[in-house]
Design a protein around this nucleic acid. Structure first.
Length: 252
DNA sequence: ATGGCGCGGGGTCCGCGA
């Protein structure tokens, strides 16, 4: 089973890229973030996929599309927060949590909201036994965890995504039993999933790793391959997202 | 194009993203 997480930065603007992505890379389950459209206006991606959409007008929004039946779903705790950022699905007995975490700012009001979002996430995750259940959290976490996850650790020191509180959140997710699949496959290498549109960041390799695939141990044992599709980001036409798709293949 | 932002809403700019 090939799972892909991709912050599309508007599904309507990225429809052609998404269609090519699932075709070319044989994607079975696609978790999208920043779809930037209301749920009932989500475009038809493919006849082969069933989609659960949690969208809103103009900003945010997440959707999970699958070639396999979606057995259960829940538009999670974020409803009470007023922003569409959390979507749970059960596919092939795998618990799939698709998140678009708030960016926040350097210790302003939006930063409090980011901390609150993750507090709610931790609360929600308590239902799982990560030693037994197959659980994956994927999406745009808006956290750059270590110095390997930022193109310049001195420039990013004290900046949002790389603040101590945010790095502690990622540390806590790993401590509770989640495994960072991308980092396991690239233990010493700077690999990025986001490049700012401004300043030609992608051409200068000035990126951040903000997107993650975290899995419980029973699921980590099934991981066969990890691909970070930077080539899609480097193309000029059609205009890419500022984020890069990440594909994880499982032996399932 | 040897350089360099793009999105949606409802507009010919603004707020937002990270």
């Amino acid at each position: 089973m090939r799972l892909c997480t991709f912050n599309v930065n508007s599904i309507r603007s990225r429809l052609e890229i998404v269609k090519n992505l699932v075709e070319e890379w044989g994607i079975d389950v696609l978790c999208m973030q920043e779809i930037k459209v209301e749920s009932d206006k989500f475009p038809l991606m493919s006849e082969d996929f069933e989609c659960v959409v949690h969208g809103q007008k103009r900003l945010n929004g997440v959707a999970t599309c699958s070639k396999y039946p979606i057995e259960e779903f829940e538009r999670g705790f974020d409803g009470e927060l007023g922003e569409a950022r959390f979507l749970y699905t059960l596919i092939n007995k795998i618990h799939i949590i698709n998140i678009y975490a708030p960016l926040g700012d350097n210790y302003g009001e939006r930063f409090e909201y980011k901390i609150y979002f993750y507090d709610k996430l931790f609360e929600w995750l308590k239902r799982f036994d990560l030693t037994k259940n197959k659980v994956v959290i994927c999406g745009d976490f808006n956290i750059s965890f270590t110095s390997l996850d930022v193109w310049d650790e001195f420039i990013w020191d004290g900046e949002v995504t790389h603040l101590p509180e945010e790095r502690a959140i990622m540390g806590k997710l790993l401590d509770m039993g989640f495994i960072d699949v991308i980092r396991e496959f690239y233990p010493d290498k700077k690999v990025f999933t986001f490049y700012d549109y401004r300043g030609g960041a992608v051409y200068k390799k000035e990126g951040l790793r903000l997107d993650y695939v975290l899995v419980s141990k029973p699921l980590f044992e099934k991981v066969r391959e990890v691909e970070i599709l930077t080539s899609i980001r480097r193309k000029r036409k059609p205009t890419p997202s500022d984020h890069v798709p990440v594909v994880v293949e499982f032996d399932l």
